[in-house]
Design a protein around this nucleic acid. Structure first.
Lengths: 185, 185
DNA sequence: CAGCAAAAGGAATCACTGCTCTGTTTATAG
DNA sequence: CTATAAACAGAGCAGTGATTCCTTTTGCTG
């Protein structure tokens, strides 16, 4: 049964979402046409539909890719066994922000307000990140600050909340800076 | 020279933007057609174009209306001569959030990432709000906490930054809650 | 290698939407 | 009250863009 091997198929899908993300970051989710993505990916109209059922499907996959990548970055820090202090963690998260991806991320927030599928992805990712930040801060309070777990439990929530808020605000700020200048990696 | 008196003209414009905001909050900026706004406002296609040059123009006016209203709410608190303590200020701002407007607000963030006109409005409003929060916190530190102005100057920036971030995060959180249930005022 | 199904290409389709245009109605100034 | 120019209604136009369909090419399996 000749068809693309799974690995190759995954590559094509990635190639398409990456092109899509570039287009989205430049022109927004809705003002990007399939033709734009066709041109950017070097593929053709029809072949995109061989990999994604519809544009909505592709937008969903792209949103997921961008947000998941962001959560993964955080996951790396969270896994470290010397938990960074909260301000340090925030600084690292902020320095890992890519402007183009920030733009698409903020676009997904806007889309999420009216599109249930995207909302699911956004809410889910934010919740997961919040939980990781929470754990990270908790670990720091206990391991580095040597707080009593019960005491740490009391302090951790507002700290995690504040970190998430500052991070989201920074994403917004980045996304609102000159959109047409910097592009490539 | 017979035409609508200025007050009446302003009323019509407001009637249109209010209808537009309701549509946007339900379906998003791009998925709302002029026909939708026509139906929602009880007016007709042609008459909308008598008041707004284009859809982009109308979107801009609606965005401005939503954001300006939000800034105005903050302005009221800032003008008070008994400056609220920062947490109190935040609580008040949050309680003044209207879900439908939060949705449109977040949509404007997404739009701002690729639309210079909207970006101008968004950046401008956020800057103005940040300045007001800054002044408000400063006033509280000096008048209520009786800090030395020089000392207050040092502390005010991170506090204002944190307040803005928590407020923006709350706007986002609100906008991501069930979009199709609650609507009316 | 050969055969074949899937993938790629790309022109054609079709629905949709922003905007314009032509009367018709209405609010205002005198 | 009347004249008038703007506001309004709503059908029509033109352009756009997602999706489909059919043909050609390609990568996989036996």
């Amino acid at each position: 049964m000749p068809r693309l091997t799974d690995a190759r198929k995954e590559l094509r899908r990635a190639q398409i979402t990456e092109a899509a993300v570039r287009c989205f970051s430049r022109n927004g989710l809705e003002r990007t046409s399939i033709a734009d993505i066709t041109a950017e990916s070097g593929l053709s109209n029809g072949s995109i539909y061989a990999h994604y059922r519809s544009k909505a499907d592709l937008v969903q996959a792209s949103a997921h890719a961008v947000l998941a990548k962001r959560a993964e970055t955080l996951g790396d820090y969270a896994a470290s066994d010397t938990p960074p202090d909260p301000d340090e963690l925030l600084a690292r998260l902020i320095s890992a922000i890519d402007p183009a991806e920030a733009r698409v991320g903020v676009q997904t927030w806007g889309e999420a307000t009216t599109n249930p599928a995207i909302r699911g992805i956004v809410v889910d990712t934010i919740d997961r990140m919040r939980a990781m930040v929470h754990d990270c801060v908790m670990a720091h309070l206990v391991k580095v600050e040597h707080l009593d777990p019960a005491e740490a439990q009391e302090q951790v929530i507002p700290i995690a909340e504040r970190l998430m808020a500052l991070y989201l605000a920074e994403l917004l700020r980045t996304s609102l800076q000159s959109s047409t200048e910097e592009t490539e990696s």
